[in-house]
């Protein structure tokens, strides 16, 4: 299931894992069912090195410049950014709500920490999401095992360190089974 579709180019700096960028946008007036979610989510592409990451990222709109109900997802290659995926179904996510104006910087710091293996939780990280909404933006990072408290605590502490958030920022952990209800 984790077949790699891309490899680092000559002289490039390999990443620990391959990743895939995805983009989704809610069509106004449509129900947010699982099927329409899967239909609305589009793969942007996969990368295996630092240099390949920058080639995608440099051409992508920054989250703070997106309009409407849009999300960027960055997941390890082979993991779909949805709770039904085998890697996610026993997992959960840390959620941070951001006032408008912070999303671009926080998203960049979050994904650089993930790509650089700053979380130190073995294979636990699945991916990250930035969700652009009307009044606020949300960033989240997903891990495989929601019941593993040592892992979730370590992810939280790393987030605090790498995001350099205002001290009053609230961080919330949600299991995917809670999110479905």
């Amino acid at each position: 299931a984790k077949k790699k579709t891309v490899v680092p180019g000559a002289g490039e700096h390999p990443l620990q894992y391959n990743y895939t960028f995805w983009y989704s946008r809610r069509t106004p007036g449509r129900p947010a069912s699982s099927q329409s979610y899967e239909q609305n989510i589009k793969q942007i592409g996969s990368f295996a090195s630092v240099e390949q990451f920058w080639r995608f990222y440099s051409h992508m709109t920054r989250p703070g410049d997106l309009t409407g109900h849009s999300d960027f997802h960055l997941f390890k290659e082979g993991i779909k950014p949805m709770w039904e995926d085998d890697a996610n179904k026993s997992g959960g996510k840390w959620i941070i709500r951001l006032r408008k104006g912070l999303a671009s910087r926080c998203w960049e710091n979050l994904i650089l920490a993930m790509l650089g293996e700053q979380f130190m939780v073995g294979e636990e990280i699945c991916g990250a999401v930035v969700s652009v909404r009307f009044q606020e933006d949300i960033i989240s990072i997903w891990n495989k095992t929601a019941s593993d408290q040592a892992t979730t605590a370590r992810i939280r502490d790393t987030l605090r360190r790498v995001l350099n958030l205002p001290p009053n920022t609230i961080m919330e952990y949600k299991t995917h089974t809670d999110s479905i209800k």
């Binding site: 390999p14 630092v50 440099s58 650089l112 650089g116 293996e117 790498v162």
Partner: peptide
């Protein structure tokens, strides 16, 4: 095996490397 760890500055410094262009 060995884990490939990069800090933020290292990643940002690769942003404008000739290979990335």
């Amino acid at each position: 095996g060995t884990r490939i760890i990069y800090d933020r500055k290292f990643l940002l410094d690769r942003r404008n490397s000739p290979i990335a262009q």
